[in-house]
């Protein structure tokens, strides 16, 4: 009886799991909103990336390591972090089309106060958000996994 209870209860209690199931997706969507609207409202790649990382960390704390790693595994995290960095560098190198490195090379910047404006800045925001979110999440994975490995020994 005790053993079967123990097997079910990985992570925190039932109540925390239910609330996490309701709020984690909302927090993730809020992070994506802040990233995409970074050039017309407060926020941007750094704040949005931190919020996205926090939603994954919440899932990991509430449900335990395995379920969180099923959503975003270590190998996928390593690939995504490289993708974020390379995306930034690629957009920066595309600036040679307009003259030099890291230039905002779009000819027309679009109408202000709309989502599709400001040239390359939204793409930079997305790259930075991927980089920050996956970087902090992988730091957290590494800090948690070692504790688990030490317990098993």
């Amino acid at each position: 009886m005790v053993d079967s209870n123990k097997k079910e209860e990985i992570g925190m209690s039932f109540m925390v799991k239910t609330v996490t199931r309701l709020t984690a997706v909302v927090i993730l969507l809020f992070g994506i909103y802040i990233v995409l609207h970074g050039h017309i409202s407060p926020g941007g790649g750094f704040a949005g990336g931190l919020i996205i990382a926090l939603s994954f960390v919440q899932v990991m704390i509430a449900f335990g390591k395995d379920i969180a790693l099923r959503k975003l595994s270590e190998a996928k995290a390593a690939v995504l972090e490289s993708v974020g960095g390379l995306l930034f560098l690629t957009i920066a190198a595309l600036g040679f089309l307009g003259g030099h490195f890291l230039i905002n090379f779009f000819a027309s910047k679009g109408r202000p106060f709309t989502l599709f404006s400001a040239g390359t800045i939204p793409f930079y925001n997305i790259a930075i958000a991927i980089k920050v979110a996956v970087g902090l999440f992988s730091i957290f994975i590494v800090l948690v996994i070692l504790k688990r490995a030490k317990k098993e020994e």
Binding site: F46, L50, V132, G135, L136, I139, F140, L143
Partner: peptide
């Protein structure tokens, strides 16, 4: 953000 990663 740098401070957070250095703290980790």
């Amino acid at each position: 953000v740098i401070g957070l990663s250095v703290l980790a």
